[in-house]
């Protein structure tokens, strides 16, 4: 794991570019998919919070999956959902305390953030750098 995904709500303007980027990146056969990230009103003036999977260390979604469809990618650190294996039982959707596994009703698939396999599109397209994908050393240095 070299990089880390960082969300900075204070920089988010709620423009929803991240949603579009995510939706197109995960499109199936040219049909846009449900976004895995979404800016939500943080409850204060001009404050938007881009909500997406936190890739928890002790992830409830992994624990809840009875068919081992959810596995952590050792390279990116993301918890990835294998759609071929998933049986749509909704256990992860119900178990995630942050609501970050979601049923895409149009594709009839459960979706969650997979960090685009190591190059998150949302971070690329965020105009205000509220979403960043940066080397771990850098973020550690900055935050101390």
């Amino acid at each position: 794991m070299n990089n880390r995904f960082i969300v900075k709500p204070e920089l988010c303007t709620g423009c929803r570019s991240c949603e579009l980027a995510c939706s197109f990146t995960h499109a199936i056969d040219g049909v846009r998919a449900l976004t895995r990230i979404t800016p939500i009103d943080g409850g204060f003036k001009d404050l938007w919070v881009p909500v997406t999977c936190l890739q928890c260390d002790d992830a409830a979604c992994i624990k809840s999956c009875l068919v081992n469809a959810l596995k952590r990618n050792p390279v990116t650190g993301a918890v990835e959902l294998n759609h071929e294996v998933c049986v749509n039982c909704m256990a992860c959707v119900a178990a995630c305390p942050f609501g970050c596994a979601v049923l895409d009703t149009q594709a009839n698939l459960i979706v969650k953030c997979d960090l685009c396999g190591g190059d998150p599109a949302c971070a690329h397209f965020c105009p205000t750098k509220a979403l960043v994908w940066e080397p771990i050393e850098k973020s550690v240095k900055k935050t101390g």
Binding site: I40, D41, G43, V49, V51, F98, G99
Partner: peptide, 11 residues
């Protein structure tokens, strides 16, 4: 749950 998370992070 997502709204709750947004609220916490917002605060």
């Amino acid at each position: 749950h997502r709204k709750e998370l947004a609220g916490t992070m917002g605060r």
